[in-house]
Amino acid sequence: MMFETFRTWFHRMGSPKWFYDITGRWIPWFGGIAALCLLVGTVWGLFFAPQDYQQGNSFRIIYIHVPAAILAQSIFFTMAIAGGIGLIWKMKVADMVAKSCAPIGATMTFIALFTGAVWGKPTWGAWWVWDARLTSMLILLFLYFGVIALQSAFDSKQSAARASAILSLVGVVNIPIIKYSVEWWNTLHQPATFTLTEKPAMPMEMWMPLLVMVIGFYCFFATVLMMRTRNEILEREKRTQWVQGLLSSQ
């Protein structure tokens, strides 16, 4: 029974029109929650959370840095899963979702790297260190660029979607391998001077705003993803009757 419901839902999701309609109703909710969480989290994190006893106020960039870094990785997985669905069930909407993921993910990765550099300067005294986490983030950024470049290299949208789906699936297999090899490389070549891996246990007052920010970032991602996918749907389906009807009614 559960499975049947899921299957109907899954099939409906495959219809661009149905996806367009349902996400149109979801966007205000996700967008609203995102705005609320980001506002509350930012004010809470920047003004009310206690100072770090070592880093003072500079640690507060964590409220942007950590959610962006988490998102950077989950978006890659989302992209690969959507790409895989598109590849297996030949579902156009999944292809469009995968395509819309790539630029958002690359932006999040860039934000994580940039805020990391800004945070690194006062804390470590350097904009960049070849720390394992920084390095694997940089490689993740290159993987995103690869997917985006491959997507734009094809003339046919279908081939572009399938080719980049394969590349993102290959990337997902490789991400853990890259992550662990970079970590091992780092411990091999130099003693771990600065490590972000072992975080000191964070007090609750610092951790709660971070949680709010992470939820806010996820909702923000969902909102932007739905908006981008809707644009993509309109562009690709512009010759269909329902899009024509939609345009003429406005």
């Binding site: 290159f142 690869g146 470049a149 394969i166 290959v170 890259i178 970079v182 490389w185």
Partner: peptide, 30 residues
């Protein structure tokens, strides 16, 4: 994999590099 993905395209050189080099990093490290 990279060669197969780009074989139908006109300019492949830089694109192939972008696709493949990140995947080569673990082998280089070990």
């Amino acid at each position: 994999i990279g060669a197969a993905l780009t074989v139908g395209l006109r300019k492949t050189g830089v694109l192939l590099t972008l696709l493949i080099l990140p995947l080569y990093i673990p082998i280089l490290i070990f």
